[in-house]
Design a protein around this nucleic acid. Structure first.
Lengths: 338, 338
DNA sequence: GAAAATTAGGAAAACGGTTGCCGGAAAAGT
DNA sequence: ACTTTTCCGGCAACCGTTTTCCTAATTTTC
């Protein structure tokens, strides 16, 4: 595979086509008034030299780079990926490119990236992370718009796009109630984790609205299968009477499912199960396939990107925007045949 | 949160410091000969205006953008992420930024991205994907170096960095032999998938070197837990005598594990199990935790980035570079206590 | 105290493109 | 035949930085 020595410049194209630089530019951009023949000649020359206008030089004039920066505050994780994909999707359609920066939980690194992005004159910045907590703004008084996706900013004037986790938890509980379960337990992640608290609170609230109590106090633990298995041990040991478990994550749900089966309880006949995240490998690997709440992370990324584009074009949408979650029903909560 | 109207230019800085733009540039870059007092004055002005030099304008001069493009051919997936992280890591240390482009298996989209990257004058391009197959080069005669990571190019003159999957498979088999297993079965993904074939062939070859036959012909199926479970059904139905299963992926291994337990076979006492990928959620969620082959994808990304940097600096390393895999031993293959 | 050697900082030319303005030639009108 | 209009396409300024001269002011040297 050969390697071209250098990039062709518009001057090369102009020379080959026998016109001035200005004329070549007009020909390629459809500006000015040129004979069709001239336009073609220039275009042909450009093709021949595989000329691509230097975006940097071009943006010098236009002030726009058609580039946005994306900073993941925690590391690129399972949650930031779909957000990233959604954003990439929405931006790609608008011919914008994405600069990816992994902050790795390090504020210094993060500030460094903000500087880098600014020096590259990105048109805007999307901030995301691996948890839904509110965080301090990445910087004050930036000359470009910023949108927070999945995570949110503590400054209410900033634009944040987040999943409506409470709504998702309510939907999960409603579904369990709809299939006739009334002794519902809740097993979730660490209590210091915002998502765990929000989901648990919403679930309890929804139960209360129907005058119900949970089958047991919410069990806070870790976001892991192992914890799900342990939690079942706790429930069984406490001789809790329960006919459904709503779990704070699919991993926990899966652990719960395995432990229940090992203990001789059938899912969904004896115990209906609902997870959270709708993570494909977990919901499909589970036996039976797991009903789960989907946060629509790609949609989140897409919305965030769209809001960023709007802000870039002068129509910012400040505030916290919660996008609905939806429930994906599978066998783990299907009503057993009578 | 206020919003600065526009970016400060070096002219603004120069004016505020009462010097010419040339002088300001020198002061900020430590060039030329200036009085220390002047330097400080300029630096202070820059700080005050939070000036960040326009990278586009700067690269106009230097010819370097300190930016590389990363094209994922298949979609950003479970395998491209670690590669991406590794690359980001190696490049970030060299103060380079990464342009991320998701080709989504669409050649048109891919070509469009190549053009975009070239117009942005990236210093180099990393191509990656979600499978290890060799693919046609993204383009001929590019003016910048290209490195393929995880996937490889069909052109042997291109630089590709790939995991030594065959070596990994051999290590898996060697380990099983070392813990005294001799009736080893292999369950893996679809036969049309390069990784499945390579791993299977290497495993068989390693067995043959010890004069052994596999417990059953390699079972090709899907990369899923469901297939793993089915495969156990096949093995048991065929009354195959086996004391170990080497699986082509962790998901398959997990399905195998669950099905074995359901059938009353103990892991590892009756059947030792080894997976492939060393995917945290799978190996840890498995009961017992799964021994697995790690392809060191982050290391792969890092190496690819390093080779790209070397190529950018004039020392290309053409050819296919296979990086070793290593085995992570856990309980699923531990020797049972006597 | 004059010549030479430094030193500090300014002016201007790149870098690669875009665009407003203007002039020359051809076409149209009188 | 001469003016007016229209159509093409060139010229040059500008975008923000860097860098190469170059000059003026200072310091050193004899």
């Amino acid at each position: 595979m050969g390697k071209l020595e250098r990039h062709a410049t518009i001057a090369d194209v102009a020379a080959l086509a026998g016109v001035s630089v200005g004329t070549a530019s007009k020909a390629l951009n459809g500006r000015g008034s040129l004979r069709e023949e001239t336009r073609m000649r220039v275009r042909e020359a450009a093709r021949q030299l595989s000329f691509e206008a230097n975006a940097g030089a071009r943006s010098l004039h236009s002030g726009r780079t058609y580039t946005v920066g994306m900073i993941t505050t925690d590391t690129i994780g399972r949650f930031s990926i779909p957000v990233l994909i959604g954003a990439e999707d929405a931006l790609g359609a608008g011919e914008m490119s994405v600069f990816l920066c992994d902050g790795r939980d390090d504020p210094i690194r993060e500030q460094y990236y903000v500087k880098t992005l600014l020096s590259r004159r990105v048109d805007g910045i999307i901030v995301t992370g691996r948890r839904t907590e509110a965080r301090a703004p990445i910087a004050a008084d930036l000359p470009v718009p910023v949108v927070y996706a999945f995570i949110s900013s503590t400054d209410p004037a900033d634009c944040s796009v987040v999943p409506d986790e409470a709504g998702g938890a309510r939907k999960a509980v409603e579904h369990l109630l709809a299939v006739g379960r009334i002794r519902i337990a809740h097993v979730t992640g660490p209590e210091h984790h915002n998502s765990a608290r929000v989901r648990a609170a919403a679930a309890m609230e929804r139960l209360a609205e129907d005058g119900l109590e949970p089958a047991a106090p919410a069990l806070f633990g870790a976001w892991s299968e192992a914890w799900g298995r342990q939690a079942v041990g706790i429930l069984l040991a406490g001789r809790t009477d329960f006919d459904a478990v709503f779990c704070g994550s699919d991993q926990i749900a899966r652990g719960v499912c395995d432990a229940l089966r090992a203990a001789g309880r059938r899912v969904p006949q004896d115990v209906a199960l609902v997870g959270f995240d709708n993570w494909d490998v977990m919901v499909e690997g589970c036996q039976p396939p797991l009903t789960s709440v989907d946060m629509n992370l790609e949609g989140l990324g897409r919305s965030a990107a769209e809001m960023l584009l709007a802000a870039i074009n002068g129509s910012p949408a400040p505030g916290r925007h919660a996008l609905p979650c939806h429930l994906v029903v599978r066998e783990s909560s299907a009503v057993p045949l009578p």
